[in-house]
Computed example of a mutant assay.
Amino acid sequence: MSGNQSKTGKTLSVGIENWEIIDNGTTVQHVDLLLENRALDGTVSLSFGSAILDGANRGQVLVAARLRMNMVIAQALRDTLDQIIKDELNPPKPEKPN
């Protein structure tokens, strides 16, 4: 393990095994733009950008993340996003008191 990685103490179930999660210190990025979305030979490519607006200067886009994944992970990501979006757009209605 390199110097900038740390053990989180958390695990992820993969099949019948538990794999240790290691944090390499990747920072959280807020993304505003989709830069790339394509599939080739079973690999989905997604790239995201962060908009930089600074006063009267011309806007810029900083590449925030370049992701490559197989179709299984792409489908899991799609399903997860679909559920998160449905839950966010249709929050549960509060129950009326009796």
Rank of each mutant, 00 (worst) to 15 (best):
K96F: 06
D54K: 11
W19S: 09
D41A: 13
L12G: 05
V28N: 10
T8W: 07
A56T: 11
A65V: 12
L12N: 05
L12M: 11
T43S: 05
V31K: 04
S6A: 12
E88Q: 14
L34G: 02
Q75C: 03
S13V: 13
K86E: 15
D23R: 02
L77A: 10
D23C: 06
N37D: 15
D23Q: 00
I84P: 00
L12P: 03
L67D: 05
E95K: 15
E20T: 11
I22G: 01
V63M: 09
E95I: 13
L40G: 01
T11M: 06
R58Q: 13
L62G: 07
P91Y: 02
N98C: 07
G3M: 12
E36K: 14
G59F: 01
A64F: 02
T80G: 10
I84G: 05
N70S: 07
L35M: 14
R38Q: 13
E36Q: 13
V72H: 07
S47C: 01
M71D: 08
G49S: 00
D79G: 04
P97V: 09
P92D: 04
K10E: 10
L34K: 06
R78K: 12
V14A: 07
Q29T: 05
Q29L: 03
V28D: 10
Q75W: 00
A51M: 14
K93S: 10
I21V: 15
S47M: 01
N57R: 14
S45M: 12
N98D: 13
G9E: 03
M69R: 02
L12E: 08
E20V: 11
N98F: 12
E95G: 13
V14K: 02
K86P: 04
I52W: 07
A64I: 05
V14T: 06
L62M: 15
E95T: 14
P94H: 04
A51W: 06
N4V: 09
M69D: 06
S45V: 04
V61I: 15
I85V: 15
D32P: 03
L33A: 14
H30Y: 11
A56H: 01
T27D: 14
M1S: 12
D79T: 04
T80M: 08
N4I: 11
W19R: 10
S6Q: 15
Q60A: 11
I21D: 05
Q5S: 13
R78L: 08
G9Q: 02
A74V: 00
L77G: 04
D32L: 07
Q5L: 07
G3P: 02
D82G: 12
N24S: 13
